[in-house]
Design a protein around this nucleic acid. Sequence first.
DNA 1: ACAAATTGGACCGAATTGGTCCGCTATAGG
DNA 2: CCTATAGCGGACCAATTCGGTCCAATTTGT
Lengths: 159, 159
Amino acid sequence: MIILSRLADYGVIVATCLAADRERQATASAVAAATQLPRATVAKLLKALARAGLVSSTRGVAGGYRLARDPAAISLSEVVAAIDGNIGLTQCSVHVEDCARTNYCPTRPHWAAINNAVAKALAAIALEEMVTPYTFAPPGKGRFTPARREKIAEPGVTP
Amino acid sequence: MIILSRLADYGVIVATCLAADRERQATASAVAAATQLPRATVAKLLKALARAGLVSSTRGVAGGYRLARDPAAISLSEVVAAIDGNIGLTQCSVHVEDCARTNYCPTRPHWAAINNAVAKALAAIALEEMVTPYTFAPPGKGRFTPARREKIAEPGVTP
DNA sequence: ACAAATTGGACCGAATTGGTCCGCTATAGG
DNA sequence: CCTATAGCGGACCAATTCGGTCCAATTTGT
Ligand code: SF4
Ligand code: SF4
């Protein structure tokens, strides 16, 4: 199973591209060139990110996008939520009345905690960490310090 | 965004239904009646669970399904993996060669850890915990009340 | 032999997704 | 004032996936 939609995946790449240089103002075409993604798609993604308030946009000639906040203050969960919508394991997690079975579903009450755990796993990653791959890593394959790994490997699963 | 497919959601319900009484052997129709899900769909789900080795099946008349292991030893991640496939955030998480961008994708190395964290969040929940008491009082429509359990085990309930 | 039950796969309509395109608006510079 | 540039909003369609059903085959107790 694939959890993130392809667009959300690309959205993270786009956001990471902007995070690489917070000061620079990049047009959609520039980001598309940098990420080697289709221009139209990148534009669509940036629009979604802008509407969510993650990036700020300036119109007109010499316009473009830039990150609205510090890359360390933007979590991955925000990025994917901007594109895929709020995170929810089941239908009743996002809109309760979407499922006709809510009344007599025995498993429904339990999903909230799990939902929370998954969301936390994504919220624990800041955009900054996606753009600084080798900050914590020795020239091997490790990407995360043990501390970091510990942090995301054990999300609070307390019902 | 909805992470679990509807089938996976239902699969958990079906598995939970079996976990409610590990000893009894229930036919697909009986489980369908107990969960109020379409018979054909339940049958399909049970087949998937059986192929994954989570439930054991006996064919022929007086056949049926039962949980293969102890409900405390079956994690939710196994159940959803049996139906939706292995858990992976992105395409490269499940099959590396699925995405043509693997070579120059800057975010790819980071997903593994996140992927792991999400998987762990699901693996931390045992099937046993889904069958535990209600957190709210169902208005006389509890699915897994003892009375209902009798009906599940009843071989002759084919509506 | 018959009936009840699982097995495996085919099947189709519906819904979602990925990706593109258009007309509109805003802004800088000449 | 005019024009080129760039974001904005949404419509649009092809392709894929998903949900659900159904059937032929097989196994097993009576
Ligand atoms: S109510 Fe039950 S069946 Fe409906 S979405 Fe929630 S968990 Fe799934
Ligand atoms: S390689 Fe990059 S673009 Fe491709 S699936 Fe992995 S993360 Fe997404």
